[in-house]
Amino acid sequence: MDAKSLIEVENLSKVYGEGDAAVEALKGISMNIEQSDFVAIMGPSGSGKSTLMHLIGCLDQATSGHYGLAGRSVETLDDDELADIRSHEIGFVFQQFNLLPRTSSLENVMLPLTYLRGPSTDGRKHAAELLRSVGLEHRIKNWPNELSGGEQQRVAIARSLINDPSIILADEPTGALDSKAGDEVMAIFKRLNEEGRTIVIITHERYIAEYSSRIIYLKDGRIETDERH
């Protein structure tokens, strides 16, 4: 196994519940994701793709197996350390955008800086640049309810970039968008990947997955196919 992989997943499994009610959502997943890769995780509902996403995103701990992120073993970390990893290494993009209401685009983009322990930089300027890079320089002061769905998702992408994370995790980022806005959002991901960002997206739509360079297909908690295209 290549020691330089950004993400190393080895025999990862996740069980929800206990005893008779136990459900094994992941049944031993092993994979690596390299720096600057663009991976799409696909699969029918119940296949475990969301669970895998949560584990990779350090929102949850695996029941067994090894998960290494940027050289650190995640399975040994406690709650606060997980929060720190999320703060420094991971940028989330959600299906429902999850922007703070009654808060400007700029403030929304700056939100993760609040929890960044370490030297504070000029977040305002950086946030404005990120908003410009997703084509929203004219929407800096607007509240989410004044933006279209596509614009809101672009604000969310800018927010995921503010801490300069190692990896961007997008959970059905186009699920709540029409196809035109969805294409715009995917174009941004494509560009970010070309700039060297590592991106993992979950989707159940084939044409969205086509934007990526590698498609991992999950079924019943196992990797069924894993191919580049």
Binding site: R86, N98, L111, Y115, N163
Partner: peptide, 16 residues
């Protein structure tokens, strides 16, 4: 609740 979830996802600790 969703805001709390988001804040946690972007790095907020319990005590935050």
């Amino acid at each position: 609740t969703r805001e709390i979830g988001l804040r946690k996802a972007v790095g907020a600790r319990r005590r935050d």
